[in-house]
Amino acid sequence: MSSTSDRVRSVLKQHAKLSVDAGALADHDDLYAVGLSSFSTVQLMLALEEEFNIEIPDKMLNRRSFESVAAITNVVDTVVG
């Protein structure tokens, strides 16, 4: 079974419309610097909810929570528990 961060990278690859290959991103690379827009952030959140079968609570729905692979992995791990 692949790790949460690998699955996050795979979701990023399909839905975030980044200007670089999501597989090559370091954990703390700034996603906004590689083209993550406010519109695609929402599409990314939806895809993460579907992939992990979770509902992301409103208080985590902010820019900071999605700024890097590490931040997103943290959100997913927190919600999955």
Binding site: S38, F39, V42, M45, L46, E49, I56, D58, L61
Partner: peptide, 11 residues
Amino acid sequence: GNSSNLLLIHK
């Protein structure tokens, strides 16, 4: 349009 995108995820 912007709100409609946000409301796909924000309750």
